[in-house]
Computed example of a mutant assay.
Amino acid sequence: MKIVVGMTGASGAIYGYSLIRTLHELNMDTYVIATNMAEKVLKFECGVSIDELKKYATVLSNQNLFAPVASGSFKTDGMVIVPCSMNSLGAMANGVGDTLLSRTASVMMKEKRKLIVVPRETPLHLIHLENMTRLARAGADIMPASPGFYHHPTEIWELVNFMNARVLDALGIEHELMARWGEKTLE
Rank of each mutant, 00 (worst) to 15 (best):
L101V: 08
I156S: 12
V32C: 00
V48A: 03
L100D: 07
V167K: 07
L42T: 05
M86S: 06
D29C: 03
V96E: 00
K110E: 05
E130Y: 02
E155F: 08
I116A: 05
I116H: 00
V117C: 08
L126N: 10
S88R: 02
M132W: 11
L53H: 09
E45R: 13
L135A: 10
D77Q: 07
L159T: 12
L115D: 03
N94E: 03
N36W: 01
L100G: 12
M132T: 09
V107R: 12
K55R: 15
H152A: 15
L135V: 09
D51F: 12
V160M: 03
K40C: 01
A34K: 00
I50C: 08
E45S: 13
H128S: 09
I33E: 02
R113Y: 04
A136R: 12
P153H: 11
F162G: 10
R166A: 07
E155D: 09
E121D: 08
K43H: 14
G97T: 06
G78A: 11
L65E: 05
V32K: 00
I127G: 01
L115V: 06
N131P: 05
L60G: 04
Y56F: 15
K40N: 04
R113A: 09
K55W: 12
A140K: 02
W157V: 11
S71G: 07
A93I: 03
H128Q: 10
E39D: 03
A38Y: 00
L42G: 02
T104S: 13
H151T: 05
I50G: 09
W157T: 14
I81Y: 02
S61Q: 04
S146T: 14
S106C: 09
N36G: 05
F44P: 05
H151V: 09
D141W: 12
Y56I: 15
V82P: 02
G97Y: 00
N161R: 15
L100N: 13
S85F: 00
E45Q: 11
N87C: 00
K110A: 11
E39K: 00
K54P: 01
T133Y: 13
C46D: 00
D77P: 02
A70D: 04
K112N: 15
R134I: 01
L168C: 15
G72T: 10
G90I: 00
G72S: 13
M132L: 10
M28H: 15
G139E: 08
E45P: 14
L135C: 12
Q63V: 06
K40L: 01
A138F: 04
K43S: 09
E111K: 14
G148I: 11
T35I: 01
A170M: 11
E121V: 05
V118G: 01
P68C: 06
M86L: 03
V117M: 04
N131G: 09
V82Y: 01
Y150E: 13
N62M: 05
S73P: 02
L65F: 07
E39A: 04
Q63P: 05
R103Q: 07
M86C: 05
R113Q: 13
G90E: 01
K75Q: 11
M108C: 11
T30W: 04
